[in-house]
């Protein structure tokens, strides 16, 4: 139990996917103009990461290892994740238009989100058990959401400030992201792992 909690905290804070591992920078910069959309994106990522972790874990241990083709891990995972996200999008669009309205627009963006692939690969690298994999994926998703929401809040504040012309837009956003990343370095050493 303690082990699982440590995995979770480590994934959320210490080894935050965006701010410590620098994975998933694209949606981090792209969908962080408003807190609301950032939160929606974060929720979608939590969901997809968890499902992807489950599926890729099975692929790894039921297909790749028995056939001795672990070297095809990356391509297999990409294939599975991409089709999975597409499937999820279709199902949501049909079953819950409300959820699709708030979440659906982010789903195609996640298809190629390297953070999702990162979770799947790290699960295998760290030889996590099934439960551990799921917890790690959820923690990674939570960490991503946390970073997104914090960053979106900062950007909303930056909108109010007289930023010098040459720094407006993405430039000042990247500087802010760097500072936020520095702040997250403060968590280093909190949990070993």
């Amino acid at each position: 139990m303690v082990e699982l909690l440590l995995i979770l905290i480590s994934a959320v804070f210490v080894n935050n996917f965006v701010l410590a591992r620098f994975l998933g920078i694209c949606p981090f910069l792209g969908v962080s103009k408003k807190v609301e959309t950032a939160l929606g994106m974060g929720m979608a990522v939590i969901f997809v990461m968890t499902v992807a972790a489950v599926v890729t874990w099975f692929i790894q241990y039921l297909v790749l290892i028995p056939f001795g083709i672990e070297y095809l891990q990356t391509i297999a995972f990409i294939l599975v994740i991409a089709s999975l996200v597409q499937l999820v999008e279709m199902v949501i669009q049909k079953t819950s238009p409300v959820l699709y309205q708030s979440l659906g627009i982010f789903l195609p963006l996640i298809t190629t989100n390297c953070a999702v692939l990162g979770v799947a690969v790290l699960n295998i690298q760290k030889s996590y058990s099934f439960i551990e994999s799921v917890v790690f994926a959820m923690g990674a998703g939570l960490g991503f959401t946390l970073a997104m929401v914090l960053f979106a809040g900062l950007r909303e504040r930056i909108d109010l400030c007289p930023v010098p012309k040459c720094f407006r837009g993405t430039a000042v956003a990247l500087v802010t992201a760097g500072l936020l990343s520095l702040a997250f370095m403060g968590f280093a050493g909190l949990v070993k792992g």
Binding site: V63, L64, F67, M90, V91, Q93
Partner: peptide
Amino acid sequence: LAAVLSIGGIGLVAAATLGLAAKKFAV
């Protein structure tokens, strides 16, 4: 052969699922 078959298999399954889903969940 195993490599080709397994990746091909995964691809086929995924494609079939997506194809079915596209029909079933078409909006």
